[in-house]
């Protein structure tokens, strides 16, 4: 499902002295089946932006169009239920949404709300828990007995079990160990490729951007300041540093090499790109050296 923002402004706590214009004139199209990363420093409006896609927040001005369904300032909650079925959001620190007596019951909550039968919901829940690699011994436990990382997996499973077409991830791996982080990112990537999910990933990990995304949106002060393929966005290193954003590890490494005189044809963004370029450099080395 495609997503379009048309001149969207959003104000938190409108008409009070705490008024906070958090999105300004957002224009954006996210094609069906794409993998988009949203980056930008703390408070730049990333979480605010993504909550517009399923109508949790409604634009103060302008409109959001998700596969034909229009969301504007006057849209009612009732009209959004069917949309929410197709848009799954994994919030920042999603473990705070767990509530049920057992892990399986918690994961079933979403499907049951969307009118799926109990057996089907149980199947989906087990399927989702397998996907997030939560060992079966935990399935009948209380979610509150799990570790933070395990709770995170349950929360992610709870969103996957609703079978969304658009999957929105707000820093889904913050606070996970490196292995868990890798597994989760690979899972999302697999869903993207196998089930053609449209993915929106909010992240501070530039490596995730380089490894997975085919499009990057850079936000600053509630505005979109850059929008393009990772190669284009990461090309302007000075600009990125000025906006308090980093570079992928491979690109950083390449820059350090470049400072010492190694010449690269183009900036490598991931490890395989870096290896490829280094091998090429070696090949081009004059024989008398």
């Amino acid at each position: 499902m495609s997503i379009a923002f048309e001149s969207v402004d959003f104000v938190y706590q409108a008409h009070t002295p705490f008024e906070n214009l958090s999105l300004r004139n957002i224009n954006l199209t996210i094609p069906d089946g794409s993998y988009t990363a949203i980056i930008g420093h703390t408070g730049s409006g990333k979480s605010t932006l993504i909550q517009h896609v399923n109508g949790l927040l409604r634009p103060t001005k302008g409109l959001v169009n998700v596969d034909g369904q229009i969301i504007n300032a006057n849209t009612k909650n009732k009209q959004l239920v069917s949309l929410r079925q197709h848009v799954g959001i994994v919030f920042q620190f999603p473990e705070s949404q767990l509530f049920a007596e057992t892990v399986v019951d918690d994961v079933k909550f979403g499907p049951l709300n969307f009118g799926v039968s109990d057996t089907e919901a149980t199947n989906r829940a087990k399927d989702a828990l397998q996907k997030v690699k939560l060992p079966e011994e935990f399935w009948q436990k209380s979610p509150f007995e799990l570790s933070g990382g395990q709770m995170r997996r349950v929360a992610i499973a709870g969103v996957l079990a609703t079978n969304p077409k658009i999957l929105i991830l707000d820093e889904p791996t913050a606070g996970l160990d490196p292995q868990g982080r890798f597994e989760m990112m690979e899972l999302f990537n697999e869903l993207h490729h196998k089930e053609q999910l449209t993915i929106l990933l909010v992240t501070h990990q530039m490596d995730d951007v380089a490894n997975y995304a085919d499009n990057v949106i850079v936000m600053d002060g509630g505005q979109i300041v850059k929008n393009g393929a990772p190669v284009e966005v990461f090309r302007d290193t000075k600009w990125l540093i000025k906006h308090q954003l980093g570079l992928p590890k491979a690109a950083n490494f390449a820059i350090k090499l470049a400072d010492r005189g190694v010449k690269f044809d183009k900036m490598p963004l991931d490890i395989s790109g870096l290896v490829h370029q280094i091998v090429n450099v070696k090949d081009r080395r004059p024989s008398h050296e």
């Binding site: 909550q51 239920v81 929410r84 799954g88 919030f91 949404q97 509530f99 709300n113």
Partner: peptide, 30 residues
């Protein structure tokens, strides 16, 4: 929490009083 549960399809403004109370549990416990 309300937003997270809403995203999972919880609708707090419809259904019978019992159904609504049950859904409220998903807010109160967290």
């Amino acid at each position: 929490i309300l937003n997270a549960q809403r995203s999972r399809g919880a609708n707090f403004s419809s259904g019978s009083i019992m159904a609504r109370l049950k859904k409220l549990v998903s807010i109160l416990i967290p």
